[in-house]
Design a protein around this nucleic acid. Structure first.
Lengths: 235, 235
DNA sequence: CGGATACTTCGATGGGGGTCGAAGCAAAGT
DNA sequence: ACTTTGCTTCGACCCCCATCGAAGTATCCG
């Protein structure tokens, strides 16, 4: 028979656990107490939940001294969470307030290992407009110019292509309902932003705080015209 | 804050409900009693579950005389189910027997609206080998020859491309752990198989029964070399 | 060696929800 | 009109599990 999907679904069907999982969607490894705080439960309860999530192989755990760091087990888990987010945000079921989320979160946030939110969506469509990227419905590929462009700014595409994961992937944004860039290249872009010091990650959320000058450099590099609203959260 | 994913997850976190959903993954509309039978519960319990699923917008219902026909609400729901199946089958959690499923199901089955199982996977890789399809990691596209080929066998590609959904889509097969063809073209292929009378759908499952001659025609059309094992379930 | 911090185990409590029997309603068929 | 079939509502039962307090173990720090 079919595998038992209720097992995985049940693991995600709890407020506390789903909050933890969503917090881990930032890609950062978090400790048990941090996750307990995030889910607003006591350490005991969190411990029980976390052991279930590890047991169920949704999380991996790394022990470091007296701390235990938890992370999502795989990209697949992150993708499942994203698709759940998507479907959930689309559905207008009574309990979920469909209202606008934290504006900073909408602006720019980390989606596991790549850039999401308005900035992520904006970048994606800017790349499309410049014909560096082609989008055939769901399939996204670099154009010839795109290959040249990213090679020029220092991406080793042949190296990235060695990875199992796709180079480009269209990831549907739950706040924007439009696609943004995921995949190995999406990861590279986020890493680059951080390496350049254009933005810093919020410690307590998935928010990505762009510095003013960083946003400018970012726009320049990707020839990306952003609306004039303040996109920076700090500085 | 984030939308409440526990709502959707909880809907899928029940044996009876998930069985119903999985049964509906065949794409067919089923009545309440059929679904009750499928989930092995009484009509009362099924009624309660089904109203929850409709309320939660995972299903749509169509009343016809004294029957009520249920269907998955959207392709997104089907995709969520597929990804849950994938993750669940990969994870080796104790409760799920990871053993081989029903051999007929493994051979050839319907995955919502396209072909899956060994035949589906085989077709996909055959198309790749013939360079009718190119696969850039996750992105699948028809090659020039592919366009010619499908046009030659009667596909109106421009018509198919009008749909919102992608023309080609790689869908990971949970039994084979390899990709098969989904998307509008995948749907066309399945429709064609049925129209040609090469195979019939099982009434009680997602199994697709190929006739001997049908399988031969199918292989011929797609220049597809299948292993000599009997791929037919009937005839 | 204490004392603090991080995490776990145990036990008790309570609530949510899955289940079915019985009865009710609605639509066909005869 | 009567019966059959398909589905729903109501009510009662009961099990599962999330939660927390208290106590226990492990690790680091001074």
């Amino acid at each position: 028979m079919s595998p038992d999907i209720t097992f995985v679904a049940a693991l995600m069907a709890d407020q506390a656990r789903s909050r933890m999982l969503l917090a881990l969607l930032s890609g950062k490894a978090l400790t048990a107490t941090e996750l307990a705080l995030e889910a607003d439960i006591t350490a005991q309860t969190a411990s029980s939940h976390l052991s279930k999530l590890v047991e169920g192989q949704l999380l991996v755990v790394r022990k470091q001294g007296r701390h235990k760091y938890f992370q999502l087990q795989s990209l697949e888990v992150a993708q499942l969470l994203e698709s759940l987010l998507n479907l959930s945000s689309v559905l207008a079921h009574p309990k979920a307030r469909t209202g606008p989320a934290d504006p900073l979160l909408r602006k720019s946030r980390v989606c596991y290992d790549h850039l999401a939110g308005e900035v992520g969506v904006g970048l994606y469509h800017s790349l499309l407009e410049q014909q560096l990227l082609t989008e055939h419905s769901d399939q996204v590929m670099l154009t010839k110019q795109g290959v040249d462009f990213f090679t020029a700014i220092g991406v080793n595409l042949t190296e990235l292509e060695k990875q199992k994961r796709p180079l480009c992937k269209a990831c549907l944004d739950w706040s924007e309902r439009r696609t943004h860039l995921a995949g190995a290249l999406g990861q590279w872009v986020l890493q680059d932003i951080l390496n350049q010091g254009w933005a810093v990650r919020d410690n307590d959320s998935r928010v990505l705080h762009f510095h003013l000058k960083g946003m400018a450099s970012f726009c320049k590099r990707y020839r990306f015209r952003t609306s004039n609203q303040a996109l920076t959260g700090s500085d």
